[in-house]
Write a protein that binds this DNA or RNA. Sequence first.
DNA 1: CATGAATGAGGTTTCATTCAT
DNA 2: GATGAATGAAACCTCATTCAT
Lengths: 220, 220, 220, 220
Amino acid sequence: MKNKTTTISQNPKATRDAKRTRLKILTASREEFSRHGLSGARVGAIAKSAGVNKQLLYYYFGDKEKLYASVLEQAYEELRTAEQALNLDDLPPKEAIEKFIKFSFDFLVEHKYFVSLLNDENLHEAKHIKKSKRLPLLHDRLRTTIGGALERGLAQGVFKRQVDPADLYISIASLCFFYHSNVFTMSAIFQRDLASEDEIAKRRAHIVEMIMGFLALESA
Amino acid sequence: MKNKTTTISQNPKATRDAKRTRLKILTASREEFSRHGLSGARVGAIAKSAGVNKQLLYYYFGDKEKLYASVLEQAYEELRTAEQALNLDDLPPKEAIEKFIKFSFDFLVEHKYFVSLLNDENLHEAKHIKKSKRLPLLHDRLRTTIGGALERGLAQGVFKRQVDPADLYISIASLCFFYHSNVFTMSAIFQRDLASEDEIAKRRAHIVEMIMGFLALESA
Amino acid sequence: MKNKTTTISQNPKATRDAKRTRLKILTASREEFSRHGLSGARVGAIAKSAGVNKQLLYYYFGDKEKLYASVLEQAYEELRTAEQALNLDDLPPKEAIEKFIKFSFDFLVEHKYFVSLLNDENLHEAKHIKKSKRLPLLHDRLRTTIGGALERGLAQGVFKRQVDPADLYISIASLCFFYHSNVFTMSAIFQRDLASEDEIAKRRAHIVEMIMGFLALESA
Amino acid sequence: MKNKTTTISQNPKATRDAKRTRLKILTASREEFSRHGLSGARVGAIAKSAGVNKQLLYYYFGDKEKLYASVLEQAYEELRTAEQALNLDDLPPKEAIEKFIKFSFDFLVEHKYFVSLLNDENLHEAKHIKKSKRLPLLHDRLRTTIGGALERGLAQGVFKRQVDPADLYISIASLCFFYHSNVFTMSAIFQRDLASEDEIAKRRAHIVEMIMGFLALESA
DNA sequence: CATGAATGAGGTTTCATTCAT
DNA sequence: GATGAATGAAACCTCATTCAT
């Protein structure tokens, strides 16, 4: 009786498994919201692709907007969790920052939905993630990690300038995020397929060089 | 026929002035689309805020999506026109690039709708602007201008590395665009108001320094 | 051009006649609301029986609840208008009161929807008619009329007691309204068909006698 | 088996006590149905306020409508039981009738839900209470009681007219019921708070006077 | 006796769009 | 060039009810 929940989750074919159902809904929602945005997404489409009754979305998440907020929170958590798994604190400063840049870039390649979700959330002035209490905490840890690497690098002389870790983070995020975020309009305008593997690899290198160069350069 | 339009536009209160009406609709649409995206925008809201009958939107633009495409095209034209007015070709290379960076940043401060419109269009994989024939042309001129400055700078020794003008453009755009595009989520997560005048000014300087530093640094 | 509206309303078959359409909706709504109450009524059923598109109800009335409020207001107006057409002020006091009682009773026989509408509105604690500004005014006139008859009767000695016109009105309304309002439960419990013509006529006489007797009796 | 229930009801905290659970559901239902009517009531709301699982309502009562019928029957029984506890047969005729009037009025003050329930049941043309077999029986006794008092009063000369007990009952019920039933719309229209203690006391006296006066008056 | 998970039908409302003038 | 009236499809959401345990 005690391990009832455990028992059920061990059964992958159980139909009455709340956790599994919740997750199926969340995954389907992420896909739909990232493809069409909050207002373009269709509750019916989510239910269908999750293979559940429409009403179940309401049963578990209340309404469309709360479901959207849950998707956002989950997406951010995924990012932060992966970041922490990098163990940057154990690396020498240059390696740490470089690894972080590459990770930031690659994460977006592998989680394309993240870009669209965030853009759409910005359209709504971040009102959904503002409600989350967990997210700022997760971010604090990241800031400490980057800040630590920068300080160590400065002490060891491999970095030449004092940089606010948040500022650096924003620059890295800018360079990584924009490319994926605007790949369609840029490709259209430059008439050049920026989504090709070659272009992506080139860009990745370009970003690493720009950031590392910046840190290695004495401030004016 | 020719002076008919002229005559009418001289009368600012004319109700039956096609050009004026078209413009009113376009302006209202830009606002609505940038605030809510294509699917979040409401045709009725546009008509109301433009002060015209809903049916007129259809009369002038066909349907919602064509109206959206018109707004996008107009927005891009505005940007490119302003860029050309900078006359970068007449400036020394460093001044030219620096001026371009600052312009790119400031334009987004003053035209916030541009950021949202572009993000939303990327959600739709740029399918609307792909239809435009004018936009690539406008862009070519820009590439030439930046490329020219880079070459002159390299020849004069003020820039130390060979850079593809498109790559540079993307980096500049990344750094400028992302900050405005993601100001809400970043503010929420960092719990710091990145939309304040101070933060914006700091960011602007940071970007200029990063790009100019990059160009001045010998490639690894 | 000027008498455009007039012209249209003269055409009984016009499809694009706002006034006629509004009225059709209102009539169908009155029927549906009186039969099923606010929450039991179906917007779709109203549209169907009015012979119009569902959306049109929203176009004209905003939402279900505003439509309900309009129905209530219209129903009350009908009652008050009919009351005023009685010209009670021109009659001797006894005749006036008696005519009023009979009218009050008969009105409910002929406008059965009125009873149900009012009962349902009381379930909602009169929140819809509270919003109406016209209704209290209409009622004031009635109070004056009844008050006048009572005073004249007292002066002439045909009535023996001083009665607050509002109190009398409530008593009359009670006796008339309840019978129609509770005809179903009473019939069920007494196992006697109180809706038959005979019973109704008997009741009508009984009420007149009770009220007139009361007024003729010296107060204890 | 017999004393099982007894045993359990001695334990007031038992969760598995059928009788207690049934009663909790019934009480919650009475509240919900009287507030919102049959169609406005929500099964989920009842379950929640009864503190039980929704499915239990179905287990005990079959469906929403049967639950509604049970509530109605219980309410009526409460009324008739209280009426019989008055022991009117043991009183002199005038006292008996007067006591009955006052009781009828006060009962509705203290059991406001009764008014709403009955109104709503009339909206449904009494179809639920029609199914009850007990209710007519209960009513017969009442008729006999009132009839007895009327006859005795006539014989003793304190009442001056022959009145059908059912007719008298209806008049009393009308005057008592309507006031509570329509207190909201009447207050709104007269712009006077008829729910205040003063108004209620005044009304109660008025009704007693009107009925007793009627009985004391020789028929025309 | 009791519960949480799940469903299907249908409810109100919104939306882009078209018709008739 | 401009309007108000009207539509059909589909959106979100709610509801009473049943299933599986």
